[in-house]
Amino acid sequence: MSEAMIAMPVRLWRSCLAIGFLMLAAVALAPAPLSAAEDVWTDLKPDLFDERPIKDGSQWLAIEAPYRAHDAALVPIKITALKPQSVDNYIKSITLVIDKNPAPVAAVFHLAQESGLASISTRVRVNAYSDVRAIAETADGTLYMVSRFVKASGGCSAPAQKDFDESIASMGRMKLRHYTPRPAADAASTPVHEAQLMIRHPNTSGLQMNQVTGYYIPAHFVDEIAIRQGGKTLLFIEGAISLSEDPTVRFHFVPQGTGDLSARVEDTEGNVYEAAWPVEPAAMN
């Protein structure tokens, strides 16, 4: 073996190193030892929810995703709550999981009763053919799950930044889009408002590997987003690298008085970004 290795030309050694690192990546990213197992979820579930039972969630929520990930870095996911956030019972969290991604938990959305409606839209990275699932926990402590299968994008799309320099240069900029409130179920109730928070951030994954380039890109992503209004946290998001660059979330809320809606965003390097907007909806049909 050593003879053969000595005889190898330098470039072959370089390619061996590259292959070594690729394999290192493959082994490192495997969700568990002996992870040839097809059913990643079976492995993952106990880590996230212990042995708690998870019920079919189709009475509580629906998940929409394109059948095929058009761009691996930018896959829109829409979770629709099928029941309002009532005082009796409501969705208090939604965990969004992409089974085959290097970091399967894309985000955990913690919702309040004052969210009005637990519907959430966001954008994620999808690395490979994968189930994408949303697990809702209701206030009474029951878990409900819905899922969709998403085919991977083609061979020339990767879950990486489009314009790396631009996303670093504008990091932390935020924008809120406020949509026209939907009418309340009855005249006595407050209408449910809908808004979209957009955050400039590369949300980059430390898994992006050095080839023979000498490049190493450390993980740097948004890990906490808190959206508050009228003294109440309406939505708290634990984020991770499977959220797209420039993370965005579309959500609902029932205004608690006329105070500003504020967002506080923190990333893994400890950067904190804050912004606030008045709640009067800028009309947008």
Binding site: M1, M5, C16, L17, I19, G20, F21, L22, M23, L24, A25, A26, V27, A28, L29, A30, P31, A32, P33, L44, D47, P102, A103, P104, V105, G206, L207, M209, N210, Y216, P218, A219, F221, D223, E238, A240, I241, T268
Partner: peptide
């Protein structure tokens, strides 16, 4: 210089897996 701040505790690199990967590459 392979580092990864895992948001999920399952994702970690063990010494045996490094060895296996390098051995396989050879």
């Amino acid at each position: 210089t392979f580092h990864y701040t895992a948001p999920n505790k399952r994702m970690r690199l063990s010494a045996p897996s490094v060895f296996i990967a390098l051995a396989l590459s050879v």
